[in-house]
Write a protein that binds this DNA or RNA. Structure first.
Lengths: 354, 354
DNA sequence: CTGAAAGCGCTTACAG
DNA sequence: CTGAAAGCGCTTACAG
């Protein structure tokens, strides 16, 4: 392995000077700098990042952490489930943004131990953390907030000394989805909603209610069907719904996510109901797959790129602004959403027309 | 930060002894060991992995590398594309297996520089590499093979001093898919195939041909439709196919992947063709989504868990068997596949019956 | 502008 | 079984 020592020798300077040149210190003569460059090139030198991390007490590494359920779940064991394809699509941008800032992404093999969890991250000298906390009650989160490692949460309302969060305007998204249906003449609108005890689910439920209210429509809580986030549960829930209700008792469904909508579509199809002829369906997220469902899915697009960009930028700036802790907590970032109309929604057809 | 120094002091021993106790050396008295354990517990000590990496010249980190196209593509920028959902599903297992072995997963922010690529991995002291090389021509791969960092490739035929690969039995999978259709009475079977210049695509094409041959059916190269791996291209290709050919000129389609099959289904549906009534369709991979397509997709299941387990186990054993290089190259691992019958395939309906 | 020296937190021969 | 010492490859006050 070629070290800075060898570069120094070849360039006829000390290791200190090599280090300065490498780190862009102004206190290096043009001459020395040039010789060092040459030596580096001819030796193919690359600094040892591990040694750098040790002495700087900080690595150029950002950890991606996930809190999901209280099982020993890893990042992908959760994202890999279909209901989280949305987050998966985000990871692309996460990685890209982080790489662009010249940080590595680390997926720690975190043991579930609550105490050692934070400590082990500290011992890895991670510069910061991008965290997705699907289960906000996870004890590790509190520890993380206290530890004051720069952290940006995605989709979970956690703030601390050195942490903040970014999330879509879920309320507004759900409101627009519902409003869209109302404008098409729908009045009896079912919502299949998940995680109403969490920030995402509850915001979406509120948006649904708000839209009805704004339109002066009655809110029938019986039309609110709790369901899991995943395709299978949404499918089962829809089956139950179809068993419980007469065909004309509702004319539209707002699904909590696209993957849930896929389950909804399948159940409707099995019952011989046409979409949007008999029932209109709206998803949420705008996952890639929406274009290929039958029919293509009208949905609420979350601006993943904007979310991630905001998250990473904020994180980097927290990291690089050094120890300056924001005791008050940093303001969260709410990114805008957008209604994407495809073919799963249409005007309501009145019973007599049917 | 609490260091081994403090543990040593509290336990009344030297740092060397603490280190030995920590690393399970037998050369520590039961007494000392006990005091050290107590000190560790009371101080909440956790060793600094960065310092360990420096002195051991190796970190407990495995890099996940991806070679895809010649663009500056990151792991997820490629896996995030729908055509690679298959690999995404694998990552879950990759992470799990790696975590189980107490290694961290690193996604390096690899600059595209070919030379520094390997060097930068070396400088991160990664213990080993899991590599997915969709573009086997990528120059970085050769460099990697030469560098002899323990590496296991997934789905690409690359072997070197300290590297091998794991892949499904693609040929057999494709052969079984085709054979399944033949047994249902199909004779004119189209295949939408991708990457026939690569190991996966070519193996699958061979399997298709082999099945026809074994059944004594003629091989009509006109029925082989090249296409990209993604849904959109498969959709377009199917549209072309439907324009070029009479409805009865073929009765089944073997798609190169499930995501391609989704595009196929959509195109068929748009043309008013029923599946499997008019055309049978088989996918490849058995992605989660297959259960929710319309109709649920018959496909070839790749045993992702087995692939990953084999890959990680092999990698770890390469890492831990130390420098013992296998000049001859290690044998590759071929994992078995399985035909999963769902509802997108059915017996051929003869023209006169139609 | 530059170098000698100390130090980051650990491990590991080497002696005992 | 244990400790003092050297060392992993770098950075950074401190002097000059």
């Amino acid at each position: 392995m070629v070290t800075s020592e060898q570069v120094a020798r070849l360039a006829g300077v000390s290791r200190a000077t090599v280090s300065r040149a490498l780190n862009g210190s102004p206190r290096v003569s043009a001459e020395a700098r040039k010789r060092i460059q040459e030596a580096i090139a001819s030796l193919g030198y690359e600094p040892d990042v591990v040694a750098q991390s040790l002495v700087r007490q900080r690595s150029r590494t950002i950890a991606l952490c996930l809190f999901y359920g209280d099982r020993k779940s890893t990042v992908f064991s959760s994202f890999g489930e279909t209901q989280h394809y949305f987050y998966l699509d985000m990871l692309r941008d996460v990685e890209q943004e982080i790489a662009a800032a010249h940080y590595d992404l680390l997926l720690p093999s975190s043991p579930y131990a609550q105490k050692n969890y934070v400590r082990s991250l500290q011992m890895r000298h991670v510069a910061g953390i991008i965290a997705v906390a699907m289960n906000p009650a996870d004890a590790r989160i509190k520890a993380l907030l206290e530890a004051a490692i720069p952290t940006v949460f995605i989709d979970s309302i956690s703030q601390g000394k050195n942490s903040t969060y970014v999330t879509s305007d879920n309320l507004e998204g759900s409101r627009q989805a519902t409003e869209h249906l109302i404008q098409l003449g729908h009045q009896r609108i079912v919502t299949l909603i998940s995680g109403t005890d969490g920030p995402i689910g509850s915001a979406r439920l509120t948006g649904y209610r708000q839209a009805l209210q704004q339109a002066g429509l009655p809110i029938d809580d019986q039309l609110i069907y709790p369901s899991g986030w995943n395709t299978e549960e949404a499918y089962q829930t829809t089956l139950t719904l179809l068993q419980e209700r007469q065909p004309r008792d509702f004319t539209a469904i707002v699904a909590g996510s696209d993957l849930m909508a896929i389950g909804v579509l399948r159940a409707l199809h099995q019952h011989g109901l046409r979409v949007p002829g008999d029932v209109s369906v709206v998803g949420f997220d705008d996952v890639n797959l929406c274009r290929y469902t039958e029919p293509p899915l009208t949905t609420i697009r979350q601006n993943r790129a904007a979310m991630v960009q905001a998250a990473v930028q904020r994180l980097i700036s927290m990291i690089e602004s050094e120890d300056e802790q924001h005791a008050s907590g940093l303001p969260p970032i709410i990114t805008p959403i957008e209604l994407v109309m495809r073919e799963s929604t249409g005007p309501v057809t009145l019973p007599d027309q049917a």
